[in-house]
Design a binder for these strands. Structure first.
Lengths: 194, 194
DNA sequence: TTTATTTCATAAACTACTTCATTTTCTATA
DNA sequence: TATAGAAAATGAAGTAGTTTATGAAATAAA
């Protein structure tokens, strides 16, 4: 599988020697999932953090009534996991499911712990990645509170144009925290405005 | 000011030698704020990450209509900042304001960057802190989507009993993403249930 | 003590969004 | 090309939460 996307990604944050790079990849597992396969299942211990080379996943919470609430999508050059389960090694709150055939590099829990010791710079890499993820998450909370569903949808379209085209509408509705019927209504409203 | 709370806090994650501990504190600034003072103002560059020794702060976003949306409270042994502004050194999206007289230790941007180099273990410390903060933030998004305001209020009370007693009700409503009137309604509803 | 200010409570009218039921469009595969 | 199943659209009725307004209670200031 093509290592370049991950190498380029890491180079945005830190510089690895070629030995370090080799050591890193020696501890990664390449993995291919088919559409609809699960990478993590709610209730299981999440065993990996995954860097996507190609494909698309959704991360969602399934409540007692069987409704799914999508917390995020991931595509090429992004990460996917249930981080809460991964870092605590407790049962996952979320499912991670492929919505396209997906290729990724897997960091297992033990291998990543070893890598942190062998290549301390990786602490910095993941610190920075997590900082950015946290900031994005906080901003999303604010948007959910202070904007209408229509405004949230328009921001989503602008921010993630690639995702909008690859993902069915009912999943986007779930990500936005509204019903598919209401998103449909918003879209027809927008198209009548033009 | 009493260093022990911060030392104890750090010891939960990493072990510092006494030299490292001294170096760390030599780069921290002790700071006291009065009730209602701002630590960060929306639009300014956030210059510090702050560890609270005593007191209480709220972090909030003020929208164009002048409504404030509280994204979080912080009390003793917690952090407070606008992390997005701090890590990018771009203008802050949030205000951080003291709602009690507050004593804290400040990590300035430059000092923290130096500390990361001088004490690389701090990368691990802040990686872990941020991981936990991110996980909590994701869970909050899900709660906001999948629970009613009443359920969210009951979870808040259970999770942060100390904060509920120190913070006026209209701020709790803002944190929960509802109006103060509706929180009032929820509370009377709950009291009639018993 | 009086007065001003903030906080909390209650109620009626309103709106953003949901639920449910039905129909239409799209996509895949035989 | 026919057909089945999934996804999207539509509309009517219902609900959670908002808005606005008003008054009471608590707290602080004078």
């Amino acid at each position: 599988m093509n290592k370049k996307p991950l190498v380029d990604y890491i180079n945005n944050y830190i510089t690895l020697t070629s030995e370090e790079e080799n050591l890193l990849f020696s501890k990664l597992v390449e993995r291919k999932y088919l559409k609809d396969q699960y990478i993590v299942q709610q209730g299981d211990i999440c065993k990996s953090v995954n860097f996507i080379i190609s494909g698309c996943t959704k991360t969602f919470y399934m409540n007692a009534e069987g409704q799914e609430h999508i917390i995020g999508f991931s595509i090429e050059d992004w990460w996917t996991s249930d981080l809460g389960s991964f870092i605590t090694q407790n049962p996952a709150d979320f499912n991670v499911q492929c919505i396209e055939n997906t290729q990724l590099f897997q960091f297992s829990y033990n291998n990543l712990e070893e890598l942190y010791v062998e290549i301390p710079k990786l602490e910095r890499l993941f610190r920075k990645i997590t900082e950015r993820a946290f900031v994005a998450s906080q901003k999303r909370i604010i948007r959910n509170f202070s904007l209408t569903a229509k405004e949230r949808y328009q921001i989503f379209k602008k921010t993630y144009p690639k995702i909008e085209q690859r993902v069915p509408q009912y999943m986007i509705a779930s990500y936005l925290g509204i019903t598919k019927e209401f998103l449909s209504k918003i879209k027809s409203q927008i198209s009548h405005e033009q």
